[in-house]
C-alpha cells in the first residue's frame, strides 16, 4: 500500500522532471508565485479599466455636447489604439520607468478608445422623445443624464466595458517588458527556462481570468438593468 502511494508520488513529481505541459506538481509547489502573479494581473487590470471608465465618461459627455471635438478626439484615440502594446509601453519608459504605472497608463489609453466609443454610442442611442419627456417633467441636465440617459445607455456602455476588460486582461501579459506583466512574467520565465507547465498554466489562467471578468460584468449588467430581463 505504501509502495503504491510512493509510486504515485514519484509519478506526479516526474511530470516536473519530464517537463510535461500539464503538471499538478507545478501548481502545488509554486502556488505562492502563481497567486502573486495572478494578483498583480488582476490588480493592473482592475486599476486600468476603472481609471479608463472614469476618464472616458466625462470625455464622452463632453464630446456629445461639443460635436466638433468628436473627430479629432476619436481619431487620436484610434491612432493610440493602433500602436502595438510593446511599443506603447516602451515609449512610456522615459516617464514612468520599469513600473506597473507604465503598464497601467498604456492600458488606460487602449481602453479609452473602446469605452469612449461605446459610451457615446449608448448616449446617442437614447430616443429623443424620452429626453423631451424628461425635460417636460422638469428634469435638469444633470438629473436627465444620471436618471434617464445613463440607465438607458447602460447596456451599450457595459458591452464596451466587457470588451475593454477582456482585451486588457490579455494585454497585461506584454507588461513583462517592464517587469510588470502579471501572468506574463510567468510565461516569459517559462519560455527562458523551457518550462512547459509554467507557460501553459499561466496562459490558461489568463484566459480563465478574462472569461470570469466577462461573466462577472455580465452579471453586474443584468443586476443593473432588471427591466431588460424579460425582453431577451
Amino acid at each position: 500500500m505504501t509502495g503504491v502511494v510512493a509510486h504515485a508520488q514519484t509519478l506526479t513529481e516526474d511530470c516536473l522532471v519530464r517537463n510535461e505541459w500539464i503538471c499538478a506538481e507545478y501548481v502545488t509547489t509554486r502556488r505562492e508565485e502563481i497567486l502573486a502573479a495572478l494578483g498583480q494581473h488582476s490588480f493592473i487590470t482592475v486599476v486600468s479599466v476603472v481609471l479608463g471608465a472614469l476618464i472616458a465618461f466625462p470625455l464622452a459627455v463632453t464630446v456629445r455636447r461639443y460635436r466638433r471635438l468628436a473627430a479629432p478626439l476619436l481619431g487620436a484615440a484610434t491612432a493610440v489604439y493602433t500602436i502595438p502594446s510593446l511599443a506603447l509601453f516602451s515609449l512610456l519608459v522615459p516617464f514612468t520607468r520599469l513600473s506597473a504605472t507604465t503598464v497601467v497608463i498604456g492600458l488606460v489609453l487602449y481602453s479609452l478608445t473602446i469605452l469612449v466609443r461605446n459610451m457615446l454610442a449608448g448616449l446617442d442611442g437614447v430616443p429623443a422623445d424620452v429626453r423631451e419627456a424628461a425635460r417636460g417633467m422638469g428634469y435638469g441636465e444633470g438629473r436627465l443624464l444620471w436618471r434617464v440617459e445613463l440607465p438607458l445607455a447602460l447596456p451599450t456602455i457595459m458591452a464596451g466595458l466587457r470588451v475593454a476588460t477582456v482585451s486588457t486582461v490579455a494585454l497585461v501579459t506584454v507588461g513583462v517588458v517592464v517587469d510588470n506583466g502579471g501572468l506574463g512574467n510567468l510565461i516569459y520565465q517559462g519560455l527562458q527556462s523551457n518550462f512547459k507547465a509554467e507557460v501553459l498554466t499561466a496562459s490558461v489562467l489568463c484566459v480563465v481570468l478574462a472569461v470570469l471578468a466577462d461573466l462577472g460584468l455580465l452579471g453586474v449588467q443584468r443586476a443593473l438593468t432588471p427591466w431588460q430581463r424579460g425582453a431577451r
Binding site: 486582461v169 490579455a170 510565461i187 516569459y188 517559462g190 507557460v199 489568463c206 484566459v207 466577462d214
Partner: peptide, 18 residues
Amino acid sequence: SNVGRAVPTFAVLVLLTL
C-alpha cells in the same frame, strides 16, 4: 472575435515556440 480578444498573443507565441 471574442475568443481572439481573450487569448493573449504573447501566450500563443510562447506556447507554439515550446
